[in-house]
Computed example of a mutant assay.
Amino acid sequence: MARRTAAYSAIPLAVVLAVTACGPSHHGAAPPPSSAHRTTASAGTPDPTTPPPATPSATTRPPRTNASPSTPAGTPHAAPCRSGQLRWTLTRLDAKPGHKPSTALLTATNTAARPCALHGYPYLEAHVGKGPAVWTEPGTKARIRLLLRHGRPVVFPLTYRAVPDRHGYCAIPTDFDPVIDVRPPHPARGDYGTPVRMTDTRGRPVRPVFCDTIRIGPPRQR
């Protein structure tokens, strides 16, 4: 009977010792990280599911906007052509203007020793004093960038109406002899143009008749 009582007394003691041994280890463990801690810790770590930012590539670089496809490679820089170094001629191609659009050729020749740059269309105006007038407008949006060397002419074709319309209207009446002035593109300050006379293909003076806007086309060099 004494042995049985001693055995029963040993059981609660073993339970108490087991609880005492586990208690300090459990209370000393670190608590699980809060959600704020997890968010802060993961902010500096890249997400493997997010691709890295794209870097510029030479193949996707936009083209240079100051390049001109009409400028030959290796063209030297030159100052703009000025009226003082250009000789202009205006040649009417059709001997008897009819109802079809008349045509003429405006030619510019560089008389200076150095080349000059002709970037754009020349401006031609026919007028009677301060009264009626007509002028040139480009017939195309093509960019013009030319290098005129000494003695090398460049030719611009002109197209215009040289007869009154069905109501008898003509911008410059046909009985007037208008004055024609020509200016290079980007003229210098105070440049009011160079007077030029119209001739036929044999060089004989003819009276110009302009009834509407003069269309000027892309040039060609001779």
Rank of each mutant, 00 (worst) to 15 (best):
G151E: 06
V196T: 05
V155M: 04
P138T: 09
G217L: 01
A7F: 02
V19P: 00
P56I: 01
P115S: 01
G151W: 02
P218K: 14
T159Q: 14
V134H: 01
P76N: 12
T75Y: 13
N66F: 11
P12R: 10
L148I: 04
S42Q: 06
P56C: 03
P76M: 13
A6G: 09
H99Q: 15
L124Y: 04
A126W: 06
S102V: 02
G193T: 03
P52V: 00
T111A: 01
P184F: 02
T65W: 08
T194N: 02
V154M: 03
L93E: 12
P115L: 04
R204G: 02
P31T: 00
L118Y: 04
T103N: 11
K141Y: 07
H99N: 15
P173V: 08
A36N: 03
R92I: 06
V182W: 05
P132I: 05
V182M: 08
P185Y: 12
I11K: 11
K130V: 09
T20A: 15
V206N: 06
H99T: 14
V196C: 02
A21C: 12
N66G: 03
G23D: 11
D177C: 06
T140M: 01
T136L: 02
S102F: 10
V128Q: 07
T136H: 04
A78Y: 10
R87W: 14
L13Q: 12
A104H: 05
K130T: 15
S68G: 07
T159R: 15
K130G: 11
R82S: 13
I214A: 00
A171R: 13
H77Y: 12
A79M: 09
S35R: 15
T136Y: 05
L17H: 03
A30V: 04
I216Q: 00
H150I: 03
H167R: 09
A142R: 09
